[in-house]
Every structure is written in C-alpha cells, then in structure tokens.
Write a protein that binds this DNA or RNA. Sequence first.
RNA 1: GUGGACGUAGCUCAGUCGGUUAGAGCGCCAGGUUGUGGUCCUGGAGGCCGUGGGUUCAAAUCCCACCGUUCACCCCA
Length: 437
Amino acid sequence: MSTSFQNIKGTFDILPDAYTDDGGTRVAPTAEWRYVERTVRDVMARYNLEEIRTPVLEPTDLVARGVGAGTDIVQKEMFAFERAGTNYVLRPEVTAPVVRSFLQHHLDQRGGVQKLFYIGPCFRAEQPQKGRYRQFHQFGIEILGTDDARADAETIAIMTAIYDALGISDTRLRINTLGTPDRREKYVEALREYLEPYADELSETSQRRLEANPLRVLDTKLEHEQKILQEAPQLIEYVSDESLAHYDRVKELLADLDVAYVEDPLLVRGLDYYTETTFELEGADLGAQSALAGGGRYDRLAEVLGSDEPVPATGFAAGMERLFLALDAAEADRPKGPAADVFIAALGEKAERWVFQTTQDLREAGLHVALDLKGRSLKAQMREANRQAADYTLIIGGNELDAEKATVKEMESGDQVEVPFDELTDYLTTKCDVDGA
RNA sequence: GUGGACGUAGCUCAGUCGGUUAGAGCGCCAGGUUGUGGUCCUGGAGGCCGUGGGUUCAAAUCCCACCGUUCACCCCA
C-alpha cells in the first residue's frame, strides 16, 4: 500500500501506537495524549478553572493587534488568507482569542474573576525543528478581571502543578517584571542610547536586535557583549514603585506556596502584550527549544482589542509537544491504551452470525469486545485476541452452538471453562468488573 | 530566509576501493497443532535503493541537479 501524499511539513499524525519521526523524536500514541490532556483537565478543575473553546480561525486583525504588529509571529509566521473580502488567520496563540471572546460575550457580567483554560492546536509558519512545529498544541489559562498579585502567583502555581502531576521535575522557573509599558519604553530608549556607541563591536544579530527590539540584546551569549552589558542600565531601575511592590508580593506568595523560582532580570518575552510579571518554565535536555511554558501579566491587552475599560489579566501558555519531550526525558510513567475485555472467536458461518449478534449484546452490557472481521482461522483469531490484550477469549464453534455453552478462556492463565449462553453476560460482566450500560 | 546532516522492506538499520537474483533484526501472513494466543521451529509476502540526468562494459555505491525530511540559527510553546 502506498500513497503519493504525506502530511504537511511541520505537522504530524498522532497514531494508536507510538512511533519515531525522521528527526528521532518519539511521537506519543493517542492514549498518552489523552492521559496528558486528562491530567491537565484534572489539575485545572482542582484550581477551579473552567474550559473555554474558541475557533481555530480568527480575524487576522485580532492577531495583528493582539499579539503585536512588530512581533515575528505577525510579521512572518501567520497562516493567513483572504476569502470573499474577509481576512482569516489560523490562530498562532490563544490569549488574544480568549480575550476577544471574553469581551464579545461580556463574560465579566458573570461576576467575579473569570478563570478560563483552553487546550487545542495553534499554527505558526516557522521552520520546524525539534520541539517546534507548524501545527502544535497548546494548553493554558487566562485569569481575567483582577490585578491582585495572587492571580499572578496562582497562574504560576497552576502551571507548575501540571508538570508536577505528570512527574516532570527537572525544570526551572524563571521570573521577572517588565513593569508598565511607559516605563519600559523609557528603559528601551536608555538601553538603545547606551548601546549605540558600541554598535560596531556588536555581532550582526545583536545589531539587528538593537534596531528591532533592543531588549533582546540582553539575551546575548557572547562574552565581550556581556561585558559591555555589565555597565548597561537595568530595567529594574526604571520600573515604578507600584510595579516593584507588586513583583515583591508575587515572589512572597510563591515562597508561601513553596514554588521554587529564580529571578532573571534578562527574561524578556517576545509578545507585545506582556506587562509587569513575566515567567518561563524551562525543561532540561530538550534540544534548542527548552521553554516548556511561559506567560505573565497583560493588563493592557483588552484595551488594545477595543475594550473601553481595562481588564487586568494574567495567563500562561504551554506546549504539548515539549511537554512530551520532557515526559520522555523524565521517563515518567504513562498508562497504556485500554485493552479489550473479551475477544470472541468464531468457527464457521453459523458461529460467525451468533458471535456477531452476541458481540452486540455484550457491548451493550458495557464490555469492551473485539472480534475478527475477516473470517480467519482460529489460530489467527487467537493471535488477534492476544494482540488486543484481551482478558478473556470466547471460542464459539459447532460444539458450543449445539451445547449452547461458550468456551471461555482466561488468557493469562490459559484456563478454560464452559459457560451456558444465558449466563454469559452476567459471567463476563462480573469477571471483568463492568457495571453494565 | 541561512547553514549542516540524512533519504535502501511497514519499522530500525547493514550493504559504497562500482561487479551475479539487494540483506538482517523486529513486525506482518501462513504452516508445524484440519478447534486454541503469548515461547519455540519452518516457510512466505513485502524494495523503480527519494526523483531525474551524467560517467562506465557495469551504479544502491561515483558526479550533478531537483525533491523531501531533519537539526540548528532567528523567534517562540
């Protein structure tokens, strides 16, 4: 069997079985995705978050304005297209769509603080590499309607709780504050002024960053550039007293919750909407893409999207693919897919009809039942039963039909018993501990 | 967009100083047991050796181009 088609570059299929892609990355099977998603939902529920689902398709302007016209995402990574006069984009992230939905549906009118989580695919037209895809999957939260430092701390606590719940412990939480936009602008100016005289000594990338986004120059790993930066103005010096007090409070609360963190004054996030607290969770040994999750406060976004009043908010976004990389690195336990309770093997045409009908009855009783749909030999059917990891296999042939008794084989021990047809459902539901439909 | 690496069976990979019908392990199918799986034994199916061109008596192997994949830079989840 073959096809000339294959999946789009930067996307991948999730199959019933795990497999290794051409880059050597293990792609987890569907059962593991469901396990991770279930765990995420469980933690979200414990922290009293409610799920929101927004479309994958959004207006291009929403993303352009929400994420920021100057960001890489908007400038070169959007899957955007026009159709009949409307501009569409496949969402590159979910924060702007959630805020859009919050404003559109007046969710503030539900009263109190809105604590929402989401989980679903996002799209960015980047060069794919390990831990980075064009269609990828994010989960995250948005806490809307409070500027309380407890919201910042809780956002971070939820994020770390999820990785803890999954057994991923080799992580590092970095935090920083960006202060308010006006102060940040002043700082960027000061930084630019400071760096300009050194422009010739800077590397090509740093020179480019100096033009586009001076804050990112702080990221440099080159020693001589770091030396230049030692004397550079610090963001923290420009941050207002209010911002500093907020930041101190967040750190205090994190300490109360025993959430370990490192302060990183150079932590700058790439999306325009962040203000005040920012943070990033790093994993170990994940290749070039070590950021498992990141987020922060974004008190101005609602207004950018047209709200007539501010909606203070915090949130984080996490990548599922990178979570799986970390899960593999941690060799954390994962459940296997569900095994069949019963496999029913049939011998002969008459038995096949009886089996087909009985299979339905057992399934209606709540049992997970598998059977052969190809008319294969008993040996082949037994092999199939084994592959399905069935706990029990029924063997139905002429003898069984005549006696009206099924041969029931317990696969692990190999023991066989005869069970009258009219007791079969009770027998199997009891043995397999199924309540019935 | 830039740089490196890699394209041989369903999967993981051998095979390249060019030389008969291109191999292994795993998986799949079947037989050993005409009504019994997981172990074992035996057999089988399955490959335009990424595509096109070139060199040569001869190309999976050498050369060129293209396509695809991947890692990395940038940036981000």
